[in-house]
């Protein structure tokens, strides 16, 4: 359902962070076994507002500040999940996954498989991602492709409040480990103004958005732009500019990387013939290559032109002119669509 239609029925608008927290609170009310662990998630309410208000309602036993020991507490979430609880554990910035990677990819992601399905790990790993505010190489990555590459984790990337809530309900209810990556720039934090777009109408009641259902955020016949997270909004901006020149771009928001909804993408490409994949992660061995390959495998004949727009293979630089150079903006997307269109 397009965002437009929803707007007519619900007029309560939420920021992405409020929508996320609403789903977490709902799940915590419904199930005593759901709890949240992370650094600065209690009194601070999450550096990026990811837990705002939860301490007040649920207390310290269920909204736990933990030591700066990511290996221990992410691993503890794995263990508690294997006991049947439903922990949500937060990595303040996704960039910090490195200090706890074993618990993430060798334990959380593999225990189900290694046990032949005898063990399951119903936890959610939340993490803030993304740049655009000059926080440099250790605090600006998205690492979408890294998590999606390693088998055993479902990977969720919301771009609007509506999606954030439904996807969070689904994530907590899911019996497998889910990595839920929220973009800082979309949260609606006072000190990091969000673009227009992520704040949307959100129903009060619970609803889920099934994983593997990409959302067509804008319909168009001339080119298919596939993207996620912050770049959904940059792609929509580019699409508006292109429309003035009569180029009608379709914008697909992946919403989950694992599972990847290749069907929606292929259907769109069958219609447009042109595929532009936009990603805020590194270019090589990542989302752009994967999406293009998945279309090429079964829909090669439909492909008239392919473009990818991503962070070149360099760490994120600090200074403004350089960060702007490497993080794709709507102009970059616009010109990629034009190239595909003119090809």
């Amino acid at each position: 359902m397009a965002q437009e239609e929803r707007r007519q029925v619900i007029d309560r608008e939420l920021t992405m962070s409020r929508a996320m927290v609403e789903a977490i609170a709902h799940e915590m009310r419904a199930d005593d076994e759901v709890f949240y662990m992370g650094e600065d998630v209690a009194d601070y309410g999450g550096i990026f507002d990811s837990t705002e208000g939860l301490l007040e309602e649920f207390g310290r036993d269920r909204v736990m500040d933990v030591p700066i020991s990511e290996t221990a507490y992410l691993g503890a979430a794995v263990g508690a999940a294997q006991e049947g609880m439903r922990p949500v554990a937060e990595l303040m910035f996704v960039d910090f996954f490195g200090v706890a990677m074993d618990q993430i990819y060798n334990q959380m992601a593999k225990n189900t498989y290694m046990s032949g399905g005898a063990v399951n790990v119903p936890m959610v790993l939340t993490a803030a991602v993304g740049g655009t505010y000059n926080d440099a190489a250790q605090h600006s990555q998205t690492l979408y492709g890294t998590f999606a590459h390693l088998p055993g984790m479902k990977v969720v990337v919301p771009s609007t409040a509506y999606d954030a809530k439904g996807l969070m309900h689904n994530a907590i209810q899911d019996d497998d480990p889910v990595v839920y990556l929220f973009h800082k720039r979309l949260m609606g934090i006072g000190w990091m103004p969000a673009p227009d777009g992520p704040k949307t109408p959100v129903p009060e009641e619970e609803y889920t958005i099934p994983f593997g259902s990409a959302d067509v955020k804008r319909e168009g016949d001339d080119a298919t732009v596939v993207t996620l997270g912050l770049h959904v909004h940059r792609a929509l901006e580019a699409a508006d500019a292109l429309a003035e020149d009569g180029i009608d771009a379709e914008v697909i928001d992946l919403r989950t990387l694992v599972p990847l909804d290749t069907e929606t993408i292929r259907e769109s490409v069958a219609k447009t013939g042109r595929l532009v994949v936009v990603d805020e992660d590194y270019r090589s061995y990542g989302v752009t290559g994967e999406v293009i390959a998945s279309v090429a495998e079964d829909g090669l004949a439909d492909l008239e032109a392919v473009e990818r727009v991503a962070v070149p293979d360099v760490p994120l630089p600090y200074a403004r002119p350089m960060e702007n150079e490497v993080v794709p903006d709507s102009d970059d997307i616009e010109s990629a669509v034009r190239s595909a269109y003119d090809a």
């Binding site: 440099a136 190489a137 600090y318």
Partner: peptide, 15 residues
């Protein structure tokens, strides 16, 4: 974040 910074502007205050 200037060109003649210690890291030519690539690092910033934490790096």
């Amino acid at each position: 974040g200037r060109e003649n910074g210690l890291s030519s502007g690539k690092g910033g205050h934490m790096h």
